[in-house]
Design a protein around this nucleic acid. Sequence first.
DNA 1: ATGGCTAACATGGTTAGA
Length: 260
Amino acid sequence: MASSVMRIGCWNVNSLKVRLDHLAQFLQAHPIEVLALQETKTVDEQFPVEAITQLGYQVLFHGQKTYNGVAILSRTPARELQRGIPGFTDPQARVLTALIDNLVVVNVYVPNGQTVGSDKYQYKLAFLQALNSYVQTLLSQYPQVVVLGDFNIAPDDRDVHDPKAWEGEVLVSAAERQALTQLMALGLTDVFRIFEQKPHSFSWWDYRGARFDRNAGLRIDLILASQALGSHCQGCEVIVTPRTWERPSDHTPVVARFSR
DNA sequence: ATGGCTAACATGGTTAGA
């Protein structure tokens, strides 16, 4: 790659079709090298390849009807390594892994879990366990790995606008946080926390109740880097601006910058 | 206060998100 800097981002767009203009605006302002999208909500047959190409990106995608769907945009060619998690049969399109130069990009849209103890919560925990095994295998094969996307887990109370109100709830419950801790224990760093950050930095705000205006959000969109990659991280920030645009996604992009 | 917003699918009202 010509550039000495590699910028990698993630963004839950909550429907790619609705958010195409915002994606173009964002990439114009932040012409990053790799962007992992979640909740594209688009079947592969209808994926807007042409629109993405016109933005100057190549794209891999793994979608389904109505729900979920993930895509990886890149300036340089990406090779698809895996759709979904090996050995974890799942009709929901939530994981896509690509090899871009020497970098393994694991784009994840972790299940929401709905409520603690529900069937969807159990599915979320099973998903995270399967993801753990998968990432462990990848880390044994490749030094440079980034696992990024919508984790639907706020790592700790700094990532929650009102920890008391959220205590024990889905997205912050002990079992979810433990699953994330176990994933990171494989050798992944939440690069956002390498750096000093403004307090109350969040990546998602509920559409309801003017929560964005009150900054009543959570940080649930994460960029986790392997040691070999993370040691080259030069910065990480949440890009809040797209949340101020008309008809926004409820999530904002997160971007990390790496030297090469 | 189990409401409240948004999107998909459908074309009214349900499902799901987080």
